[in-house]
């Protein structure tokens, strides 16, 4: 309080002469503006809240405007924020004892027995790949913090082949010119679309092992996607088909109002 100068004292202690007409006019106009602003905010909110949902496509279930913002956010955080960062990795001692099972959509125990991965290449030709072929490829071990869109996270340990290595082995250069990779369970009931850049991230793996053991059925045997730069909803269990597309492939949770990109 010691440093107050003359102007401050003038403003807060002396003020200016009281003019009743001026005071009434300012009070009226100010409250009118506040009231009008409040009414505008109320109607603006009502309009947004009761806005029709987006038309159904690769995404659905969100209000039109909000879906627009989610898609714009993707541009900001995927394109404008530089860097292809690595997710933090952890020592084996940090791994959680029982990894959480949080969904069984599309899982089919009968499909594990004579499972083959259907790889849809350019021109629509399909290659069937056995789990033995995949296990013969270079193996990558990854212990990272798995993050669920619900808000929980767990340090989990997975192993498999990097998708980048897989793509190299099966000569997918042409296919990877597409902007998106689509993955589906054998029964087609769960499906995700992932941007090709995220699929080629060095920590994205097609996993066949959890904690050093073959993946159990409820965790997506025999092969599942582990992609640390995405929420769990994109980490599709029991991959049946992999395909490539310039358009956004259908995505189970994006059709239920969630962000398509779901990037971390």
């Amino acid at each position: 309080m010691k440093e107050q100068n003359k102007d401050d004292l003038q403003r807060f202690n002396e003020g200016e002469p009281y003019d009743k007409q001026k005071v009434n006019r300012r009070t009226f106009l100010s409250f009118l503006t506040l009231g009008a602003g409040g009414i505008a905010a109320y109607f603006g909110w009502n309009r947004l809240y009761h806005e029709p949902l987006e038309s159904e496509g690769a995404t659905a279930g969100a209000r039109k405007t909000l879906r627009g913002v989610l898609n714009a956010n993707e541009q900001v955080f995927d394109k404008a924020v530089p860097g292809n960062h690595l997710a933090k990795t952890y020592p084996a001692s940090a791994v959680v004892k029982t990894p959480k099972v949080n969904g069984d959509v599309g899982l089919d125990a009968k499909a594990i027995e004579d499972w083959k991965l259907q790889l849809v290449k350019a021109h629509g030709t399909t290659t069937a790949i056995t789990i033995a072929e995949i296990k013969a490829l270079p193996k990558t071990d990854l212990t990272f913090d798995f993050k669920c869109v619900e808000g929980w996270e767990q340090v989990q340990r997975w192993a498999g082949v990097k998708f980048a290595d897989f793509a190299k082995h099966f000569n997918l250069q042409n296919e990877l010119m597409n902007k998106h990779v689509g993955l589906k369970t054998p029964d087609g009931k769960y499906y995700v679309g992932v941007d090709t850049a995220s699929m080629l991230h060095p920590q994205t793996i097609l996993a066949y092992e959890m904690n050093g053991q073959p993946i159990t059925p409820d965790h997506g045997a025999p092969l599942r996607l582990i992609i640390p730069v995405k929420y769990g909803i994109k980490n599709l269990k029991q991959i049946g088909t992999i395909f490539f597309s310039n358009e956004r492939p259908a995505d189970y949770w994006a059709e239920r109002g969630y962000d398509y990109f779901a990037g971390l």
Binding site: G61, A62, R63, L66, V69, N73, R256, G257, Y258
Partner: peptide, 14 residues
Amino acid sequence: RLSEGMAFHFAFMW
């Protein structure tokens, strides 16, 4: 209402 909450949260955050 998780998806709805996220959509509002990540729009109004700006």
